[in-house]
Design a binder for these strands. Structure first.
Lengths: 189, 189
DNA sequence: CTTGAAGTAGACAGGTCGGTCTATTTTTAA
DNA sequence: TTAAAAATAGACCGACCTGTCTACTTCAAG
């Protein structure tokens, strides 16, 4: 793996569980077993490590979601699969995503509220990427681009809402409820 | 107002904008113009001040939302008004809620992920309170309690999703898009 | 006028923060 | 085998952290 990746993995795990400003560089070093100078050979500052952790989470999450959706026929079934996938995530059945502590990107934007900050921008880019994935599948079952965008938007909001409800209120069935709503929205097509 | 409220107001403003762990007690003291000992006369620790800030935000936000919804006839119109209200919030037209930095409760849960932590619990209680408000109005236009709960849940998810989209992606029209979706969901009733 | 509560200013304590530096050891490749 | 590169441990820096303590001031109620 290499020390660089060890640092990113450990940092991501700690940042995700406790928040970024609550975790010091020394804790990342101790838990990863890497020396301080090695960290600063790979990253010029804590902020750069944060950026790398966000980028890594983006890759992990997006690839997981995309492959889950690709396991089903494009369009309606893939879109429904998204809700089953996040349901598994909420209920800690996806080890690669760690234990569920809400959405890392939402949480991180709570700590980096300035939309011009590189960390915030990376979080925004992740969400946009997921939205484009939904839009791609929505196009399969919609008669116009406008309809597809509206459907993708609706599904996106339901998914984000479910993440929030699952994390803040501890509602482990939030994804299934969102799926039921989404199902009703698509079926009349 | 009194020093205690000065501290809560200042703490809430700073916590909301920058996150809780990024703000030190000394900064709250400096910006509020209160002495350190006075803070520790009113609050036994920073955590208690955080709790008070969350409680205050709950009061501010809920009273604002409820009064906005009460300005319209109960039921469908009040529910639609919710989306107009949060639209104003996203676009910084609600001074009492400060400039928009996403949902303080969502952001705070990102920093206090343990669901047993008092701060997390207060955030969850806030969301539940809002949900109950939606349910109350949903009951006005639904034929069964089950239907009302499902409608309230759908509207809740759309609203939470819109908050996330507005904050993370900077989509200032997220509330209006959510409203359009909600409108289509209610009209067939 | 006095007494006591509340607030102020600021030093202080022990610890952690991000980050730099040195000196040593391990690893890698020529 | 040897020289360069990478990683190590850990001291060190100045700043900041939460929280305590002391000494002084403000001010209202009796």
């Amino acid at each position: 793996m290499g020390r660089r990746q060890d640092l990113i993995d450990t940092a991501l795990r700690l940042f995700y569980e406790h928040g970024i400003h609550a975790i010091g560089i020394n804790q990342v070093l101790q838990e990863s077993g890497v020396a301080k100078q090695t960290l600063y050979n790979h990253f010029e500052s804590k902020d750069k490590l944060v950026e790398a952790a966000v980028e890594h989470r983006d890759k992990l999450f997006f690839q997981w979601l995309e492959s889950r959706m690709n396991s089903r026929p494009a369009g309606r079934e893939a879109l429904m699969e998204m809700f089953d996938a996040v349901h598994d995530w909420f209920n800690n059945r996806v080890p690669t995503l760690h234990r569920f502590y809400g959405c890392f990107f939402i949480n991180t934007c709570g700590e980096y509220s300035d939309p011009e900050h590189p960390v915030h921008k990376r979080c925004a880019a992740h969400k946009t990427r997921v939205f484009e994935l939904l839009k791609r599948h929505s196009l399969e079952i919609c008669t116009s681009v406008t309809d597809a965008e509206e459907l993708a938007n609706a599904l996106f909001l339901l998914k984000e809402g479910a993440i929030v409800k699952a994390h803040v209120e501890g509602d482990l069935d939030a994804a299934l409820k969102a799926k039921a709503i989404a199902s009703r929205m698509i079926s009349p097509h």
